[in-house]
Simulated assay, not measured.
Amino acid sequence: MFSPEGPSLRELAVQALSSVERGYDLLAPKFDHTPFRTPEAVLDAVGSALRRAGPFDAGLDLCCGTGAGIGVLAGVCRERVTGVDFSAGMLDVARQRVRPDGPPVSWVRADARALPFAPVFDLVVSFGAFGHFLPRELPGLFAQVRSVLRPGGSFAFPLVAPPRPASPGYWMLLGFDMVMRVRNALWRPAFVMYYRAFRLGDVRRELALAGFEVEFQALPEFGRRRDGSPRVRLVVARLPGQPARPGSVNS
């Protein structure tokens, strides 16, 4: 599951018994050698879809971690790119390792639930971070994203179809979420990370309530399931208004 450069079982246990912020500070130096990092195949597929929709001017990577998604933004944004995360350790690694070609990159430490930006971005992306937000936090989170986007701006992120109930993956994720709930019932501070809490129907509803026009685009690189549904979708939530640049994403 982990490469030899990844964290030891003891290091993972210490992280899991910490707060989310402290846990990621500890994990940061080895994070890119774990399965938690967004796979390059997902980053490439999202980048291809956004290139067809762009170009954009300013982009924000929400909960950027060690900066895996910054390269996606650098490939579609012309003026500047910003990564924001609340873990100082993850941002330190990002500053050291990420040197993308393209527009200048800045790094900001902040909580996604209280973003310190004016509406200056044309595109916000996020990769693999939504399990850290409880369902009741989605309205506030999406309101924050809306607040930093210009009229016509877009919020885009990949969403993997949940595994079928009969599959090993389903039971693995269910077991992980149950362990985390027991851990959080018995131990403080809480470590919020639930793989099954971010559901497509909830996402669509809360984005619409936040004022977004929501579209779904199948990412063809990952194929379709037996029932014909996409294995991976790109969720594109667009604000009404005239975008600052030509281009839009079609489902």
Rank of each mutant, 00 (worst) to 15 (best):
A197W: 07
L60K: 03
R150Y: 04
D122W: 06
R51K: 13
F127W: 09
L26N: 06
Y194T: 07
V182R: 14
A13R: 15
K30S: 02
E5Y: 12
V249R: 12
G54E: 04
G140D: 11
I70Y: 08
Y170R: 05
R22W: 07
E137N: 06
F56C: 06
V192K: 02
G223H: 13
P240V: 02
A197N: 14
V203L: 15
N184L: 06
G175Y: 09
L17M: 11
S147A: 12
V81S: 13
T38F: 08
V46N: 02
E213S: 13
R238A: 08
A129L: 04
R136M: 10
E206T: 06
L138F: 15
F155K: 00
A74W: 09
L239F: 02
V235E: 02
A166I: 09
G6C: 07
V125I: 14
Q144F: 10
S87R: 00
G71Q: 08
M1D: 12
V125G: 01
V232A: 11
L17S: 09
R52I: 15
G175S: 12
A49I: 10
G6T: 05
A218C: 09
P139E: 04
R22E: 10
A118H: 13
Y170N: 02
F121I: 06
P103A: 01
L219G: 06
G169Q: 12
L186N: 11
V160Q: 12
V148P: 01
